[in-house]
C-alpha cells in the first residue's frame, strides 16, 4: 500500500543554540515527508543532537519554528545511551515485552528484522553493544510510531548490523503503520556509507558543517 507523501515535519528558518547561548546552526529550512529518511550528519559539536531536541520540542530554538504533524505519543525517539548498566536482570525479551502495551509474540519481534530467536533470551548485562543497540531500535519499532527519530543508531554496530538496521529503516518507511498512516525517519549518523545502504527509498541528507553553511542534498529518489 503506497501512500501519497505528506509533510510530517517542517522547520522554517531555524537557529539553534547551546544552553550557554553559542549558535550552532542558522537559517535551517527543511521538511520531512512520509516515506522518506532524512539523514543529519556533520562533525562532532556542530549541533546535530541539539537539532533533534529542538525538533522534538525539548529545547526552544533561538529563532524560527518547527511543526510536527504527528502526536507526541507517535514519535519514537532513540537518544544516545548515557549508561548501559541496569540494576534489574532483564533478558532482551523482557525489554521488548515491557515496552509495549500489548503482549508481544516472538514473530512480531522477528518481523522487525533486527533480532533472531536466539537473541531473545540473552541477558542485557551480557549482550554486546550491537545487540543492545538493535534491541533498543526494535523496542521503538514495536511501539509502531509514525515518526522515528534516531540519534547515532549506527554506533557500536558492525557492517552486517549496519546493513540490517538500514534495511529495517527502509522497511519501516515503506510500510504504513497499524493505523494506516505513512511514516518517516530522521537519523543522525556519522556513517558516510549510509547512502549506499539505503537505496530503495528517498534519502535526503542535511549536512551541518558550521553555523553558516548547512546544506541539504537529496541522495536517492523514490523508485
Amino acid at each position: 500500500m503506497q501512500h501519497s507523501p505528506s509533510q510530517l515535519v517542517s522547520a522554517r528558518d531555524l537557529t539553534t543554540v547551546t544552553h550557554d547561548g553559542r549558535i550552532l546552526s542558522q537559517h535551517l529550512t527543511f521538511q520531512v515527508n512520509t516515506s522518506e529518511i532524512l539523514l543529519v550528519s556533520g562533525p562532532n559539536g556542530v549541533g546535530k543532537s541539539t537539532l533533534l531536541r529542538v525538533l522534538l520540542g525539548y529545547q526552544k530554538p533561538l529563532r524560527g519554528s518547527v511543526s510536527i504533524q504527528v502526536p507526541h505519543q507517535r514519535v519514537g525517539y532513540l537518544p544516545q545511551l548515557q549508561n548501559t548498566d541496569f540494576h534489574l536482570p532483564l533478558t532482551l525479551r523482557d525489554i521488548l515485552d515491557t515496552a509495549t502495551h500489548h503482549a508481544i509474540d516472538d514473530q512480531e519481534i522477528l518481523d522487525c528484522e533486527l533480532l533472531s530467536q536466539e537473541h531473545l533470551n540473552l541477558s542485557w548485562k551480557t549482550a554486546s553493544g550491537g545487540e543492545r543497540k538493535r534491541t533498543l531500535i526494535t523496542r521503538i519499532l514495536l511501539q509502531d510510531p509514525d515518526l522515528l527519530v534516531l540519534d547515532e543508531p549506527m554506533n557500536h554496530l558492525d557492517p552486517s548490523s549496519r546493513f540490517q538496521v538500514a534495511k529495517a529503516l527502509e522497511h519501516f518507511v515503506t510500510r504504513p503503520s497499524k493505523r494506516g498512516t505513512g511514516r518517516s525517519v530522521i537519523i543522525i549518523s556519522h556513517e558516510k556509507s549510509l547512502g549506499h545502504l539505503i537505496d530503495s527509498v528517498s534519502l535526503r541528507k542535511l549536512i551541518l558543517q558550521s553555523p553558516q553553511s548547512p546544506s541539504l542534498e537529496e541522495l536517492t529518489d523514490v523508485e
Binding site: L56, G57, Y58, H72, Q73, V75, Y77, P79, Q80, L81, Q82, N83, T84, D85, F86, H87, L90, I95, T98, L136, D151
Partner: peptide, 13 residues
C-alpha cells in the same frame, strides 16, 4: 529502564 539507560536524554513526552 528508559530513565536508567538514557538519563537526561530520555523521551520526555
Amino acid at each position: 529502564f528508559e530513565l536508567a539507560i538514557f538519563g537526561r536524554n530520555a523521551s520526555r513526552h
